[in-house]
């Protein structure tokens, strides 16, 4: 185990730059990064072929530390850049890492459209229920009633369920994991990367410094342990009543469907365009029709 950790450290971290990282001690982001690196290592993806794009926030810093083709984009826009990269070079494995505010507030439109569009992309969304970097303001996943620096009297809005949002928006593969279940997370990230089509992994993570502290959820270890307590496997959750599921959430694969992938579908468009151009040229030659040209 230690050996593999050392190997991953050696192989995938950018040793020459910018450590220590910006994350607070106990932050779940490191666990997500580790799970992602182990997934990429296990899948034996050549580093040159991996593109990692992120938005803004704590999660946005992740690509800085890892030795791939990395793009730290603007807030909420990681998927738009990823779309451009993927369409320009479909042979690359393009993965985005986003936060909850990043992906579903400012980037919400891009997120649902990326899911609908079904390019062969992977989105990893680290959900810590808050905007950690800017000081703990409420995010689209801050629970009703919670305190944040912009909801000191208790939050009056309702939270998004990111994974379910991805399912109804049309993603081909949607899973939810937590930073407690690190191996499970690694497996699901592998599934997501391998999946043909738009794949989403929502990772429930802890921000004990902002969200946790203000809502008395304990320190990093206590928060991470609470994920163990409250996570229910999807298969089990399906059999539970809404009352039984109160305060709990499901983990595992929520959706895994096959549908045409638009990255590949576009080749069909190119062929159709060629066929049409040939047809028009032949028609012109036959009829002597000269459109536009003198």
């Amino acid at each position: 185990m230690l050996e593999r950790a050392e190997l991953i450290r050696q192989e995938y971290l950018r040793h020459d730059k910018k450590f220590p990282h910006v994350w607070c001690p106990g932050c779940g982001n490191g666990i997500v990064m580790n799970a992602l690196l182990r997934a990429i290592h296990h899948l034996e993806l050549p580093k040159d072929n991996v593109v990692l794009a992120s938005g803004i926030g704590c999660s946005g810093r992740l690509p800085t530390y890892v030795d791939f083709n990395t793009i730290h984009t603007t807030h909420g826009r990681a998927l738009t850049f990823a779309t451009g990269v993927k369409l320009a070079k479909p042979q690359l494995t393009v993965i985005t890492v986003m936060g909850d505010g990043d992906a579903t507030a400012i980037g919400g439109n891009h997120f649902i459209h990326a899911a609908r569009r079904n390019l062969n992309l992977t989105a990893i969304i680290i959900n810590n229920n808050t905007y950690g970097m800017t000081g703990g303001q409420y995010s689209p996943t801050t629970p009703y009633g919670s305190k944040s620096t912009t909801s000191v009297y208790g939050h009056v809005e309702h939270a998004f369920n990111i994974a379910e949002l991805a399912v109804v928006a049309g993603a081909s593969f949607v899973a939810r994991g937590t930073v407690y279940h690190a191996n499970h997370l690694n497996t699901m990230i592998q599934q997501a990367i391998t999946k043909r089509g738009f794949s989403v992994v929502e990772v429930i993570s802890n921000c004990h410094v902002q969200h946790g502290r203000r809502n008395k959820l304990g320190n990093a270890v206590q928060m991470i342990n609470s994920f163990k307590e409250n996570a229910v496997l999807v298969s089990k959750a399906e059999k539970m009543t809404a009352e039984e599921m109160k305060g709990k959430f499901s983990i595992g694969v929520l959706c895994d469907v096959e549908k045409p992938v638009s990255t590949e579908e576009y080749d069909r468009v190119r062929q159709a365009a060629q066929t049409e151009a040939i047809r028009i040229a032949e028609e012109k030659a036959k009829n002597g029709v000269k459109r536009y040209e003198e």
Binding site: T74, R77, T83
Partner: peptide, 18 residues
């Protein structure tokens, strides 16, 4: 794309890919 913000992101992404 879904809006012009996304269009701009996509063309930069494509440009970064050469």
């Amino acid at each position: 794309m879904e809006d012009e913000i996304a269009s701009m992101g996509a063309i930069i992404g494509a440009s970064l890919a050469g």
